[in-house]
């Protein structure tokens, strides 16, 4: 008998929607489909640059500062080298500026602290959805770029960090799959609010928030704000870092341009 009973129809509906959902999963995770939708990232970046290439991120008043600034991602690096620096209060920490520059630099924390600092109270937006407001201070990246002399062939600034996120300690190196790194283009690099933050809410940066040096790139999401920065490299191509998408999270499918 092949009578379409109500139960049979209902069961068919459930099975059908199950098939639909399974097909949906297969479609959205297919590499070619994903590559196609990732094209939206360029559209977003072009649009945002068109309507506000040099726009400043909103700055808040001291009264708006979040009572507790949520720390996320790596909050306590396990690398022995980093821990030795932390134990010594980062007196020997150095930040190198390398790659496509006229004059490579190696700056001590004291030298960074002696540079003119910019203070800004801004909202930090995590890709997860939350926001926290904090007051950051430190030298603008532009000061270091000027001092080092950016070569005309440079297109990106890569920030190499001391932490291996979610991976084994000390597996560093440019191609490491675990070393945290991030990169921005030169528009954001020269932006006046792009600073190397040394202080949060009028205190020296603590380990959870990226001590002793973290990037602030205020018009993009939190994962772009590299913590524990030890090297700033000017490059013309991102292919030689990690998996080649320009950052720890971009290598894992997140947008490289995180203005959205």
């Amino acid at each position: 008998m092949s009578i379409m009973t109500r139960r049979g129809f209902g069961g068919g509906l459930v099975a059908g929607s199950g098939l639909l959902l399974a097909g949906c999963d297969a479609l959205v995770s297919a590499p070619r489909a994903r590559a196609l939708v990732q094209g939206a990232e360029q559209a977003t970046q072009r649009w945002q640059r068109l309507v506000g290439r040099d726009a400043l991120a909103r700055e808040f008043s001291a009264a708006d500062i979040s009572p507790v600034f949520k720390a996320n991602g790596t909050i306590a690096p396990v690398e022995p080298g980093y821990q030795a620096h932390a134990a010594a209060n980062f007196v020997d920490w150095r930040v190198r500026v390398s790659g496509l520059v006229e004059r490579p630099l190696s700056l001590s924390l004291a030298q960074l602290q002696a540079l003119p600092a910019r203070s800004q109270i801004t909202r930090h937006d995590c890709v997860e959805g939350w926001s926290a407001i904090g007051g950051w201070a430190g030298p603008p990246l532009a000061l270091l770029l000027n001092a080092a002399g950016v070569k005309a062939s440079a297109r990106y600034v890569v920030f190499l960090c001391a932490d291996n996120y979610g991976g084994k300690a000390d597996e560093g190196g440019l191609k490491s799959r675990t070393r945290y790194y991030e990169s921005i283009d030169l528009v954001d690099a020269w932006h006046p609010q792009t600073i190397l933050a040394l202080r949060l809410n009028n205190a020296a940066l603590d380990v959870a928030h990226g001590a002793p040096v973290r990037l602030r790139v205020e018009r993009q999401l939190g994962y772009k704000h590299a913590k524990y920065v030890e090297e700033i490299m000017l490059v013309d191509d991102l292919a030689s870092f990690g998996s080649g998408r320009g950052g720890y999270w971009p290598d894992r499918g997140y947008e490289w341009y995180a203005g959205i």
Partner: peptide, 20 residues
Amino acid sequence: TIPSWRDLGLARNWHFAAAW
């Protein structure tokens, strides 16, 4: 949810393409 597992990166890729 799309996809049926937790995947913020993949969901965001599709969300913004669909938004355009």
